[in-house]
């Protein structure tokens, strides 16, 4: 990986020096390799800290939201999922293409720093540092879908043939009663920390529906009904928009399998309005399937 890290530093230094960008978003390592985290380089000296290792799992597109109202030119690395996140922001009108210089980098699959930290923390029974991060095992596009410059070898999607919606199908095969108990068990754990919302690139509303008070759509109590409402409403807002970066599930402090719900909606949107995968290519003016209406849209579920 070190060759790639050096290449990235070269590129970032070049971009910063020439003034083509005001800042460059990538990753840096902590004391241990698993303590890899997002890092923003502002000066040429900062680029020495940039690395690309096996723990660079974060979706850097989420970092762009802080700068959406500004005018800084931003250079950034983008793996497959990061680049789909960028397309999401562009399509949602949350960022302008001209402000970005995207260094696309094919992703070999990442490990999860949070999982590594938790397994070493002493707060959980000894868990061996398993391989790929959960979100990477279902990856359908490790190669960047939008970029100004491309580095790294092309990678093949990691998802196994026919396995993509396996867990979703397992749940679909349950009886209604079983399904309800399954989700009741999961949602009763939710502590409503809203980390899933904050980590999500597609959650970019200025005033989130869950912060709205006039009227208040979902109460703040962690009752089972409010928890159900929160997750189902958020998932519905993701339908046709989720770019499957898996950050929501990764950051959840109580390990709720959020991608299961998102994947169900991806499968349904594909079936009803598809074929469609969110964030795969940026075409100006393109809208996600649920943001546009066709006369022959299926409505037998109404």
């Amino acid at each position: 990986m070190t060759d790639i890290s050096l290449k990235i530093r070269e590129i970032a230094a070049r971009l910063l020096e020439s003034g083509q960008v005001d800042m460059f978003i990538g990753w840096e390592e902590g004391e241990e390799q698993y303590q890899t985290r997002p890092f923003i380089a502002h000066r040429v000296e900062d680029v020495e800290k940039l690395v690309f290792n096996q723990y660079a799992v974060h979706n850097l597109a989420n970092a762009l939201l802080k700068y959406r109202d500004g005018s800084e030119k931003i250079g950034m690395l983008a793996k497959g999922c990061d680049s789909r996140g960028i397309v999401r922001l562009l399509q949602d009108g949350q960022f302008q293409r001209e402000r970005l210089y995207i260094v696309g980098i094919a992703c070999p699959g990442m490990k999860d720093p949070l999982a590594a930290a938790k397994s070493r923390s002493g707060f959980l029974p000894a868990v061996t540092d398993s391989g790929l991060a959960a979100k990477c095992t279902d990856c359908i596009e490790p190669n960047p879908v939008i970029y100004d410059e491309l580095i790294g070898e092309k990678e093949t999607p990691r998802v196994q043939e026919g396995q993509r919606f396996k867990l979703v199908q397992d749940i679909e095969n349950m009886t209604l009663e079983e399904r309800y108990r399954f989700f009741e068990d999961i949602f009763s754990r939710c502590i409503r920390c809203y980390a899933c919302r904050q980590a999500c690139v597609a959650c970019n509303c200025r005033t989130c529906i869950f912060d709205e008070m006039k009227p208040q759509w979902v109460g703040r109590e962690t009752s089972i009904s409010d928890n159900f409402m929160y997750h189902l409403v958020r998932a519905s807002h993701m339908a046709g928009r989720c770019i499957e970066c898996g950050e929501c599930e990764r950051v959840c402090p109580v390990n709720i399998p959020l991608m299961l719900i998102n994947q169900k909606l991806i499968k349904d949107v594909n079936a009803f309005f598809g074929p469609y995968e969110a964030g795969m290519a940026y075409t100006e003016g393109a809208k996600p399937p649920l943001s546009s209406y066709q006369e022959n849209d299926p409505d037998n579920f109404l």
Partner: peptide, 25 residues
């Protein structure tokens, strides 16, 4: 503060964070 997503996880896992909201049902 650059990379902080203000997700709030720190305040939930912290044993000494106590800020609360008051609402009505």
């Amino acid at each position: 503060s650059q990379t902080c997503q203000t997700c709030g996880i720190c305040t939930y896992v912290c044993p000494s964070c106590y800020c609360f909201d008051i609402q009505v049902k």
